[in-house]
Design a protein around this nucleic acid. Structure first.
Lengths: 152, 152
DNA sequence: ATTTCATTTTCAATATATAGTATTTTATAA
DNA sequence: TTATAAAATACTATATATTGAAAATGAAAT
């Protein structure tokens, strides 16, 4: 691999450890020219995941679409980008570890909602109302009551 | 590595190729249980990159911050998420291949501007005006003229 | 200052991956 | 549709990575 310090193309692996969950191999390598060391990670190439939308159309899974939805719900809320990243990451992980080739957009929405609920009630309500995931209007109203019915 | 099909933890590498640029090793592996095949990629662990902001403060590089800026500039414009992704990816690649540990937010902005300019004039103007990267007001006005001065 | 926890380093025997060459299939662009 | 590029398959001799255990280092906490 190309040394990130001097750009030389030859190196040797001096250590290699697989994580217990089998999802990652960390290798420690040393450049054969400058002798400096660096780390690499080997990961499985994710199988293409297809999202089935409400109207039945299918499209490639794209985590950025999830991110955009969450961002909108979090506008003007005190939620850092890192927090949003974490949710997106968790949602993707949850979906992928089901080992299915397809997910419905509804399932994705529900996962996001579950996580937003823990993080920020306002963002949660905004997101949930867009995705119409409330079982009924009462549940929706109860949630609004909880947060005082403001800033939604 | 954990088989993405059956979850078994043992497998063997049946092929391994390094890309010419030395930035990636692609391995083809076969699960020792279900015999199914899958692909893995090994990449160098990126050195932490620090962004130096205009006021001198430093923060960890986060590609999503770039994405958000571009998204805002592209609002209501006919630009797909994939296109935005591509810009973000290219910008990050450009920055990282300089092998520096730090970048100024101005440099990042300029890279984004260069790429948006080719893609969509309106988004370009919006982004550039936010980042105040025009050398002078005349240049700004000229650009607005070019696109008819509307929808900015 | 000392303990704890995580990361890094070392070492050596042996199992395992690699690279060269070539054909085939699949995906993407023209 | 055709052209082009990218990814997958196959096979084999040989070079290279892996693994366990233990010690060293560095950072954070007491």
């Amino acid at each position: 691999m190309k040394c990130p310090y001097c750009g030389y193309l030859k190196d040797k692996v001096i250590d290699s450890r697989e994580r217990d969950d089998g999802l990652l191999i960390r290798r420690r390598r040393a450049c054969l020219k400058c002798r400096k060391r660096f780390t690499t990670y080997e990961e499985i190439d994710l199988k293409p995941l297809v999202v089935v939308k409400k109207d039945g159309r299918r499209e490639k899974f794209n985590r950025d679409k999830i991110r955009i939805g969450i961002q909108k719900a979090c506008e003007k809320r005190p939620i850092s980008i890192d927090k949003i990243d974490k949710i997106v990451e968790e949602v993707e992980k949850d979906i992928r570890q089901r080992y299915e080739d397809e997910v419905t957009s509804k399932e994705i929405g529900q996962l996001v909602i579950k996580k937003l609920k823990k993080l920020d009630k306002v963002a949660y309500i905004r997101f949930a109302s867009v995705y119409q995931e409330f079982d009924n209007i009462n549940q929706f109203l109860k949630e609004i009551e909880k947060i005082g019915g403001k800033n939604v």
